[in-house]
Amino acid sequence: MTQVLLPRALDELWDFLEEDPNTAVYSGGTDLLVNLRGGRINPSRLACLERIEEIRGVRDAGAAVFIGAATTHTHLLENSLVSSEFPVLTKAIRVLASPAIRNMGTIGGNIVNASPAGDTLPPLYALDAEVEIVSRKEAKRMPVSDFIVGPGRVRLGANEIVKGVWIRKAPEFNVRHFEKVGLRKSQACAVASLAAALSLSEGGKIERARLAWGSVGPTVVRSAEVEEALLGRELEIQMLAEVARLVERAVSPIDDVRASAQYRRIVAGRLLLRLAESGCKN
């Protein structure tokens, strides 16, 4: 039997965490409970974050949007601010797990779990999102790409939690694309994924490009070389196929039970081709 604590405010949470440093926090539990059952973690008790109002919901902060860590995927899917400002994130969440898991799972859990296959991560990397970390004494922000250091490894100290993510609005991006390659249409762990935000000029030339790949390295992959190679070009198949070669070199996938490194590498590159369909449109 494990004790489960249900704090209603951050102050209450800090008390719990200080009382017993072996207390694990969780939100939806959709990663934590799997690890608990598998015997990979052994906390003395659990503190649930989902009732803490300060870290839930989506807030418009003018130039940026704040998403509370304990906001569920379902909530984000239904949020019009998120879908209008960050459609690439919405597209990713739409194919994350299944309705039941999206009802429970949260964006904060997805970030802290730091799986290379976490579906919100490529969009958050492509959007240059920042993670806000809080403890009883301080609050700080860092880019998501600094926060996540490896599979399942994040820069989070004792008695710190993720409060949420900050994403700057970026209306200049007019192509927002996400594709996940999984082994089925629902409940599929990504074998490779691509999030892309591009600005196309009137004439169809790429002016800005931010791309991020999931599941093809220990953390989400971004490549300055690839992004630069796209600048000034038009979204046509020949060019994308050439750049795909660069992608194959930029990623560092592994073989596992779901797919070989070879397949992940090829597909990471080929996913670019789909951008040709976007042409000048969103």
């Binding site: 299944s98 082994l183 089925r184 249409k185 629902s186 409940q187 599929a188």
Partner: peptide
């Protein structure tokens, strides 16, 4: 072990 889901 991947079995098909309803959308598949």
């Amino acid at each position: 072990y991947i079995i098909p889901t309803a959308p598949d």
